[in-house]
Amino acid sequence: MSGPRSTADPQPGGSLPGLDLRRLRGYLDREAPDLVDGPLRGGVLAGGKSNLTYEVTDGRTRLVVRRPPLGHVLATAHDMGREYRVQRALAPTPVPVPQVLLHCPDADVIGAPFYLMRHVEGRVYRVPAELTALGPAAVAGLARSLVHTLADLHAVAPDSVGLVDFGRPDGFAARQVRRWKTQLDASRSRDLPGIEELHDRLAAAVPVAGAATVVHGDFRLDNTLVGPDGDIRAVLDWEMSTLGDPLTDLGLLLVYSARLHAPGWPAPGDLAAAYADRTGRDVRDLGWYVAFASFKLAVILEGVHYRYVRGQTVGAGFDRVGERVPPLIAQGLSTLGES
């Protein structure tokens, strides 16, 4: 995963924030003795604002480790077993995922459950300037590839990959509204005007959902690794995946995509039309899903802000996360007003 950059480069056998490399090496010696050869070194991969991601290597094999954040872990929000399971299940499908290798539910090994996967070569695009350098045609092609990847995910029949029990799709959208309100209440550290109104209006107008699919839960461009020819090589960060309403993924993608002001990047309406054309799904109620995505993202970022003010984050860039929450609340209310 070459897009995110390591923020630390300890000496072989050293420790990283939240990951003791000596203890990890001992675990690998027991569970996969032929996987690595020699002391491990590595660093924290920049970019993630929730679960922690590390790149480790013995100088020959490059691996990636995922574990929950260092503190304030909300129930079910950082389940390493779910991330591991869904990626393993999707491996034989058209959805590009990293090759997962091991899942360790034992928190005593490194201080938290974790899983291990192989490194994937690719770039992460995070800001419009990075896209602008590609040129409009390449940017449009990348957007098309992103939408097609989401459509491919939603085309996977859960029972065909052993995920029929991966979630409770009945009442999914209404339950999601309640869940994120619960997450908000568990992460409150300041007043957020308008967020109660946004929640109440969403809860009062939940649309009737179509057929349930596997949903990623945080599908966006910078949760993918992109190859040099613009192909999506891997979809990352499956911590919120489940079975549910696929339009929740599309709504969130549109909220994120509206901030990618690069020549060639399609307007949100064009992305929605491309998705509808690829999948045949009815997107007439998409305004509610965009408003819900604004609420959900506001709650996620508020949780990150909550951990930041308590010194429980690792890496740079967390000091300004909190200021992004009020505009999302306003966007959600505005979108519901338009709908």
Rank of each mutant, 00 (worst) to 15 (best):
M1V: 10
V283P: 00
G81D: 12
V64M: 11
T182M: 08
P128K: 02
L297P: 01
G315Y: 04
D165W: 12
Q99C: 01
S145T: 13
D34S: 12
A316Y: 09
T242I: 14
G337H: 12
D9C: 09
A75P: 00
P136H: 05
T313S: 09
P39R: 10
D245I: 05
A291L: 10
R188K: 13
W180C: 05
E323F: 05
L260G: 00
Y275R: 03
R307T: 08
A157Y: 08
L301Y: 08
Q87D: 04
L90P: 00
G315Q: 06
A155P: 01
V109D: 10
A140D: 15
L198N: 08
A205C: 09
A267D: 15
P94T: 08
D152H: 12
R190V: 12
V325I: 14
T93F: 03
D245M: 11
M117P: 00
D34H: 09
G38P: 09
H199C: 07
G171V: 02
S257P: 01
V235N: 03
I195N: 07
V156T: 06
L202Q: 03
T335A: 13
P17C: 05
Q331L: 14
V97D: 00
M240C: 08
D170R: 11
R67Y: 03
G18N: 11
L40E: 03
H78C: 06
H199Q: 04
G287Q: 02
R168G: 07
V215S: 02
D249H: 06
D249S: 10
G48Y: 10
S334W: 12
G26E: 15
D106T: 08
R190K: 14
L74E: 05
R22A: 15
G322V: 05
L24D: 02
P326R: 00
A316Q: 14
P158M: 15
L40I: 13
R144G: 12
V73F: 01
L328W: 06
F318Y: 15
S15W: 02
